[in-house]
Design a protein around this nucleic acid. Structure first.
Length: 722
DNA sequence: TTGTTCCAGCTTTTT
DNA sequence: GCTGGAACAA
């Protein structure tokens, strides 16, 4: 069999990983070293050389995007459709297994998947039901507690009834939450993974079946796996020596949501005969960029160790811009992007990366006033929008009227005159009788203890749902969706909304009908489930593309986190300041600080040709002026790799001008704002404000060593430095 | 039931 | 300094 095309384009290390004999393999793949390529080629290689059916392959990723891309590339390499191959996200695959084996897993056949937003709402409702104060038991904290334990594989019933009030209360909440979910047949994201783990662990026959089926198991972004995901992989591969994982400990940036870098170490002890392959040759960035990244990351302890190199030249030095303030920073970046475009670069080749989403605003404003198209990543995705979730809630009720979560969401949307009082009554009936809200409302309208008005409005809701259920019979999926958005009054409700918002929402609802029409039933369906259930699961598991047209030539704005896996010719990492990046919440804790450093490493290694780092001498945060210091990460990069950019006179502008827009103008004072100065006693600093005239003239200087000082110019011997 | 005001809180994000 | 949610008034 001719397999040369699979390996001929690979370098030595890549080829070693791809062609290694069957055994457990850990590929430590540096940024831009061809990680996905190795994974894809390995799978193709295995299938070809061992003459396997593609159904013997299991490949797991974290995002749907990565899964889709991987499948596409494998099919292209093999030149046939590998429909039977299980390629998907941990959650997607877990969902598929649970659908197949709902009964064995102890779930109702019609279980429904809820996303984190639904989960949070449920927790809030639970707190209300238990009469607990949200201020004392913050819902997000409860959510974190529940998910945290699930990710570690712990059920409420496994946990000891000990500890302080806090511990016991949280445990109660966890237990109640589990019960509520079970009653309504709801499964959250963490539950998908935990259930599957329990299913395989406790069901020897099933486990053996899947162990025999999946001859080779592959994992992408292995450094991001959490405890339960790793345990799941362990079950499937134990004793079989067939686990192939690709990851980069230096790019582990999701520790805060449960990812365990330690899994990389565990792998090495759990699979004694494993092979480790390092991919260190980088095909993305210039040597200067790689050297900076290498120099930064060596400051972390306990790394697996890896040093990126390239055959390419040094390229441009890395530029560092010390902005006068955050406005100036945005101004500078946008000017450089303009220049890039003038010289023939594409806007889409330029990215502005920041630590936190709030930083995007200034850049957006600058880009907008400069007439430069841009695209901001992040924010609400399609299936997460309120109007979409409302429509989905109606669909959930069609599929499963006892879904309390969906019921509460839309009982009064659009307004039917069902207020909190009535809803509270429904809840108490449901609670007392241990029935669902849907059953409760049906009971209540027959009971005679309510007013005629309440009875009327409740009946109107019951009719809406019953009609939907009756009409749904025999309709195509998109027709069901169509009805759910029209006959419930959702479309009219949003049409009445003033402003463009309403219009956009109506459009989104129509888009939902479209999405349903295009929904590929076959693709997701391997278990003979009904189409509506699958569509709803799809909506929860795949929250939809980010907004905006990818194909337009736009400057890309995103957080450093979302930049992982991407590359751009021109990269700006902005706000590289102590207290912003690293974030103040991470500074105290060494392991979190290391994660911030890895985040910086991820950012640097996104750049192919040109990298700018910038920070501001003065920045408004939450309405207060702060005078941050340049980030320690900048200092960890050898200064000979960095070229400092001084704008000198051209950037000087008073603070008041900075606020009202930019018209750079010369100051008549002795010192320009932003001017670097030196003081005999205080050392070096930057002029931030100038006040008064003549003998009364004072300047505010931020000194590197001693911080902010106001100095009388007449007395202080300040010297300008270049 | 809707609109207004007040107040806390405020990384990162996929599924 | 802005936002989302909750408490309040009309």
């Amino acid at each position: 069999m001719d397999v040369t095309h699979i390996i001929e384009s690979l370098n030595d290390a890549q080829r070693q990983a791809v062609t290694a004999p069957s055994q457990s393999i850990l590929v430590l793949a540096g940024a831009g070293s061809g990680k996905t390529r190795v994974l894809v080629h390995r799978i193709a290689w295995i299938i070809k050389t061992q003459d396997l059916s593609s159904q013997s392959i299991l490949a797991v990723t974290f995002t749907n995007k990565a899964a889709t891309e991987m499948r596409g590339r494998i099919e292209k390499l093999l030149d046939y459709s590998a429909q039977a191959m299980w390629v998907g996200t941990f959650h997607g695959l877990a969902h598929r297994l649970l659908r197949r084996h709902a009964h064995e897993a102890g779930l109702p056949e019609a279980f429904q998947v809820i996303d984190s937003d639904d989960q949070l709402r449920m927790i809030k409702r639970l707190l209300k039901a238990l009469a607990l104060d949200e201020a004392r038991w913050p819902p997000r904290q409860v959510q974190g507690y529940i998910n945290g334990h699930k990710e570690e594989g712990r059920r409420a019933r496994h946990m000891p009834e000990t500890g302080d009030l806090y511990q016991r209360q949280m445990l109660t909440l966890y237990r109640e939450y589990e019960q509520t979910c079970m009653r309504s047949g709801l499964v959250d994201f963490a539950e998908l993974l935990l259930r599957v783990h329990e299913l395989l662990r406790d069901n020897e026959k099933l486990l053996q079946f899947y162990k025999q089926r999946f001859l080779h198991v592959h994992v992408d972004e292995f450094q991001d796996t959490n405890t339960i995901q790793y345990a799941w992989l362990r079950l499937l591969t134990e004793g079989k020596n067939n686990l192939f994982v690709v990851g980069d400990d230096d790019q582990s940036i999701y520790g805060w949501r449960g990812a365990k870098i330690e899994n990389i170490y565990s792998f090495q002890s759990d699979y004694p005969n494993h092979l480790v392959v390092r991919l260190e040759q980088n095909y993305r960035s210039t040597a200067n960029i790689l050297n900076a990244a290498n120099a930064l990351i060596v400051n972390n302890q306990g790394r697996m160790g890896k040093e990126l190199w390239t055959e390419d030249g040094d390229g441009e030095p890395i530029s560092l811009y010390a902005a006068f303030n955050e406005q100036d920073e945005a101004y500078f970046v946008v000017e450089r992007i303009k220049k890039w475009v003038e010289l023939g670069g594409l806007r889409s080749e330029a990215a502005i990366l920041y630590r936190s989403n709030v930083q995007s605003r200034l850049f957006e404003e600058r880009l907008m006033s400069g007439g430069i198209p841009y695209r901001v990543y992040g924010g609400l995705r399609f299936f997460e929008r309120a109007e979409i979730k409302n429509a989905l809630a109606y669909l959930h009720l069609i599929a499963h009227a006892n879904n309390d979560s969906a019921f509460e969401r839309v009982i009064n949307i659009p307004n039917r005159g069902i207020g909190p009082k009535t809803i509270e009554d429904l809840r108490s009936v449901a609670r007392d009788e241990r029935i669902s809200l849907w059953q409760a409302v049906n009971k209540l309208v027959l009971s005679g203890v309510i007013t005629a008005r309440t009875k009327r409005v409740l009946n109107s809701f019951i009719d809406v749902i019953n009609n939907l259920i009756e009409q749904a019979e025999g309709l195509a999926l998109h027709e069901k969706v169509q009805r759910a958005v029209e006959h419930t009054g959702l479309i009219d409700f949003h049409k009445k909304e003033k402003g463009e918002k309403g219009e956009a929402r109506v459009e989104n609802l129509q888009e939902l009908v479209n999405a349903a029409r295009q929904f590929d039933y076959e693709e997701d369906n391997t278990e003979g489930l009904n189409e509506l259930d699958l569509f709803l699961a799809h909506a929860a598991l795949e929250s939809g593309e980010m907004q905006g047209d990818q194909y337009d030539d736009c400057v890309q704005l995103m957080t450093l986190h979302s930049a992982k896996g991407l590359e751009f010719k021109l990269v700006f990492i902005v706000g590289v300041e102590e207290g912003l990046f690293p974030s103040p919440r991470s500074i105290e804790d060494p392991s979190r600080l290391e994660e911030e450093r890895r985040l910086c490493y991820v950012g640097i290694t996104r750049a192919m040709q040109i990298l700018y780092l910038s920070y501001a001498e003065s920045r408004r945060i939450y309405g207060r002026d702060t005078y941050p210091k340049c980030s320690r990460f900048i200092k960890e990069i050898p200064s000979d790799k960095i070229q400092e950019i001084r704008m000198g006179a051209t950037i000087s502008r008073p603070v008041s001008m900075a606020k009202s827009g930019f018209s750079p103008r010369q100051q008549k004072t002795a010192f320009q704002l932003g001017q670097r100065v030196s003081h005999v006693k205080f050392g070096e600093g930057v002029v931030l404000q100038v006040e008064g005239e003549g003998a009364q003239e004072r300047v505010q200087v931020n000194f590197t060593a001693v911080g902010m000082k106001w100095l009388m110019l007449a007395y202080a011997k300040l010297e300008a430095i270049a």
